[in-house]
Design a protein around this nucleic acid. Structure first.
Ligand SMILES: [Zn+2]
Ligand SMILES: [Zn+2]
Ligand SMILES: [Zn+2]
Ligand SMILES: [Zn+2]
Lengths: 171, 171
DNA sequence: CTTGACATGTTATATTATAACATTTATACC
DNA sequence: GGTATAAATGTTATAATATAACATGTCAAG
């Protein structure tokens, strides 16, 4: 690889910078490479459909609906029925390579697959960009709130809707 | 009212106790009374459908799908088409009398309407109970995470899926 | 009592998601 | 290589969730 990914890497290691101008080709290529490594390591297969769906999601810091993905797949000669898209998306989500954004009924690529992370998302209603934010403190606070009633958290959904810096200026 | 609601009131003022045995008739009656007061104060109308939908949601600490609500309404002589349920649910949500649980595509009554609160939800996958948890610290942490990238939060979704104390024992 | 705003009823359709089964493709073993 | 096995994909059909658009009804103000 061209450089260390332990260090800051706009739009990739510091995903909040999804809102800022950055070398997105790098984001995308890097996430794909990590995904391939991760899947190989687990003895799983990043088949053509799965890989293509991931590439499509990686094109932008946005979330795509399953049917948007399906349209793209169909145009490229893959199956054109919903399960084709849903199965690939489900696989990617299970492997932590994509995330479901519940507020949007849509999916977005994970920009740092392999790193243990409980994701929190910032969704801009102006430009539709979706960014992953550092969620450890948020999760910790949620654990505390849950723990007070003896509730054990298994999965959590943390999504914030609002305006990114650019879109605040525009408004 | 029978007692002060500033003090602790299981299942109502301390909604995490939705998981515990409590006087739920009290929960329900109190939330409904508050809702009526709140709506009157705003010069809005808690019409028969809206009121009935709220009552239905208040029956249990669970979330109901719009079509579940619709079935109930239809059986009681209200309209039997989706907009009847969705409009009432949307009204209740806008007025803070009900909350949408995105993970479940369902709606749950707010157990302390009128109090300013950014809701966080604990969803038990064993018994399907949904509890509101104190979310201020969670929101604060999320604000910090968002603020670092200049993102301004307008609305947020915080939902945790897991097991309540009872269901942990059962498992 | 009429007007205007709000609420409800109704028809139709859009959007999102899954069940069930057939077919193909890749892997494991001989 | 050739078969058994598992995994993935394709396909048909349908379920579940949600909204657009317009007609009708209700209510309170003037
Ligand atoms: Zn990028
Ligand atoms: Zn934006
Ligand atoms: Zn209760
Ligand atoms: Zn439970």
């Amino acid at each position: 690889m061209a450089h260390s990914h332990i260090d800051a890497c706009p739009g990739c290691e510091v995903p909040d910078l999804a809102f800022a101008a950055h070398d997105h080709a790098h984001c995308s290529a890097d996430a794909l490479a990590r995904a391939e490594a991760l899947v190989a390591e687990k003895g799983l297969r990043l088949t053509p459909v799965r890989r293509r769906v991931l590439e499509i999601l990686l094109e932008e810091h946005r979330a795509l609906g399953a049917y948007d993905v399906l349209t793209r797949l169909a145009a490229e000669g893959f199956g054109n029925q919903p399960p084709v898209a849903y199965r690939a998306l489900d696989f990617l989500e299970e492997q932590g390579l994509a995330h479901r954004i519940r507020r949007l009924n849509a999916f977005t690529a994970c920009m740092h697959p392999g790193e243990a992370h409980a994701p929190a998302f910032l969704i801009c209603r102006g430009c539709n960009v979706v960014a992953e934010a550092p969620a450890a403190p948020v999760m910790a606070a949620l654990q505390v709130a849950a723990g007070q009633s003896g509730f054990v958290i298994e999965r959590s959904t943390i999504e914030a809707l609002g305006l990114c810096p650019n879109c605040q200026v525009a408004a």
